[in-house]
């Protein structure tokens, strides 16, 4: 059963601020990037590099992913911060290393409805990045589903390409993020035009 909000009171959202340089002792936690234990059957590695506008890797970015499980179900399980090694919570966090590389151990998400193109939701934070950026990484298979995807359909081919991962020989996914410049990743605004702010 659903009910609508009885008294809608639109409040103005609190501004974001940069994550800064010193999150390293606060946000990372044990097994933060292991949505599944490495080596689990059907687990894959999702990895990539975060680049700045000069094409240099960014050594102080931190990413989070949030995704459906292999069957396309949205997880509703606690335990992302204290992993029990069995429960798939759908959430992971990975600070990049000094070469700008992040890694996650996860599964290929299933389609959340029939015919939908599976993707992983991603949020990016970095020193020097004033506010978080949302994006998506799509699995490269099933071109029909990708062609029908509402977001991908709304993008020019060279921009669309930035949201689709490459399938590695070992079954993993590689997907780089470019904050600026040539091949700049498509970042998303979910708020529409009424949220105020400059392109937030």
């Amino acid at each position: 059963m659903t009910m609508s909000n009885p008294t809608p009171t639109r409040l103005t959202p609190t501004p974001g601020q940069t994550v800064g340089p010193f999150y390293g002792y606060a946000l990372p936690y044990n097994k933060d990037r292991e949505l599944l234990a490495p080596g689990t059957p059907d687990s894959i590695r999702l990895q990539g590099t975060v680049y700045d506008g000069a094409g240099h890797p960014i050594p102080d970015a931190i990413l989070e992913i949030w995704q459906a499980d292999a069957e396309g179900n949205v997880p509703h399980r606690t335990g992302s911060l204290v992993r029990d090694g069995y429960t798939f919570t759908g959430f992971g966090r990975s600070a990049v290393g000094h070469t700008g590389v992040y890694t996650f151990t996860t599964v290929n998400p299933g389609p959340t409805k029939a015919g939908a193109a599976p993707f992983i939701s991603v949020v990016v934070f970095a020193r020097g990045l004033m506010n978080r950026l949302f994006t998506r990484v799509y699995l490269p298979e099933n071109e029909d589903a990708l062609a029908a995807d509402p977001l991908l359909r709304s993008l020019e081919p060279e921009r669309r390409r930035t949201l689709i991962a490459r399938r590695d020989a070992d079954g993993g996914l590689t997907w780089d993020i470019r904050l600026q410049g040539e091949g700049e990743t498509v970042f998303l605004d979910f708020e529409g035009s009424d949220a105020g702010g400059a392109a937030q």
């Binding site: 700045d52 949030w66 459906a68 399980r77 759908g90 498509v186 392109a199």
Partner: peptide, 23 residues
């Protein structure tokens, strides 16, 4: 060098994006 130069692209949230990890 760390800000996108293109406008953020409007998207309607879908499935996973309309839920949050549970803590």
């Amino acid at each position: 060098l760390r800000h996108p130069t293109k406008d953020l692209h409007h998207a309607d949230p879908e499935t996973i994006e309309m839920y949050s990890p549970a803590f």
